[in-house]
Write a protein that binds this DNA or RNA. Sequence first.
DNA 1: CTTGACTCCGTACCTGAGTACGGAACTTAT
DNA 2: ATAAGTTCCGTACTCAGGTACGGAGTCAAG
Lengths: 137, 137
Amino acid sequence: MQTYTISGLARAAGVNVETIRFYQRRGLLPEPDKPLGGIRRYSQADVARVLFIKSAQRIGFTLDEIAQLLQLDAGTHCAEARAIAERKLEDVRVRLADLQRIEAALTQLVDRCAARRDTVSCPLIAALQPASASPPR
Amino acid sequence: MQTYTISGLARAAGVNVETIRFYQRRGLLPEPDKPLGGIRRYSQADVARVLFIKSAQRIGFTLDEIAQLLQLDAGTHCAEARAIAERKLEDVRVRLADLQRIEAALTQLVDRCAARRDTVSCPLIAALQPASASPPR
DNA sequence: CTTGACTCCGTACCTGAGTACGGAACTTAT
DNA sequence: ATAAGTTCCGTACTCAGGTACGGAGTCAAG
C-alpha cells in the first residue's frame, strides 16, 4: 500500500498543503492518527477524496454540500442516505440543464462564427431562461 | 414596455437590491442613465441578465467568467467571440462530464437504497475519478 | 405640504474558501 | 550530531461575493 506525506498528497491532488490541513479542520478529510509524536501518512483513498472535493467544487457545490455528499459515500444508513441523495439529485439536475443550455448556446455561437466572417451575437442569456419572468409590480 | 425600479428588478430576479448595485459596480449590469437627478428604470432584459448571472454562478462560473460570457451575448467581433466561446466550451464540457457522473452515481444510490432496506454505500468518489492518480514520490 | 416608502451613494462589515507565517518538533543526508 | 528540509499547529491575513448602514434626495398619497 502506497503512502503519502502531506505534501505528497497535496502534490498528487494538485492542491496546496495548507488546503489539506484546512479540509481536515473542516472535517472533509480524516486526519490519520500519527505514530506517537510522528508524522501522518496518507493513502490513495485520500487523494481520491481531495480530487472529488475539487471536482464537486468546480460544478458549484459548497464545502458544506460536499460534506453531505461525502457522508453518502461513507455508507450512511439507508433512509437518510436516500433522502440526502434525492435532494442532491434534484439540484444536480437543475445544474445539468443549465449547463446543457449553455453548452448548446456556445456551440451554436462557435459554429455560426466559423461560418460567417462578421459580427455575431448569440442568445446566451436567453439560453438560461427557464420560464417567463413575472411583470413588475 | 414594462419598467422596474431597482427593488422591482431585485424582486423579479430573486436577489437583494444591494446585489443589483454590486453587479453594476462590477460592470455586470448596465446602469441606466437616470432622468436628471431622478430614479433609474430597468427592463425585462435586465431581469434576464440577472437571472443569467445567477444560473451561471450555480454551475460554478465566477463573476469574471460571467462577464466574459456576457460579452459574447453582446455580440463582440467574430474572432474574439469565437476564441472566448471555445475556451468556455471546453470548460463547460468538463463540468458537464463531472456532473453527469455525479448524477449517475446518485441515481444508482437512490435506486439501490429503494430496493434493499439496509446500509448502502455508493461509489460517489470513484464516480469523479477521471483517470488513475499517480503514485507518491 | 408633509409623511412614509423608496432611491442613491459611499463606506463598512460579513462569510466562504483558502493562503501565509512562524516557532517547535521530527527526519534524512552528510 | 548537525544542518536542511518537512511536518505540525495555531493564528492571522487575503480575496470573492455579497450585505448592512446611514444620510441625503425623490416621489406619491392623503
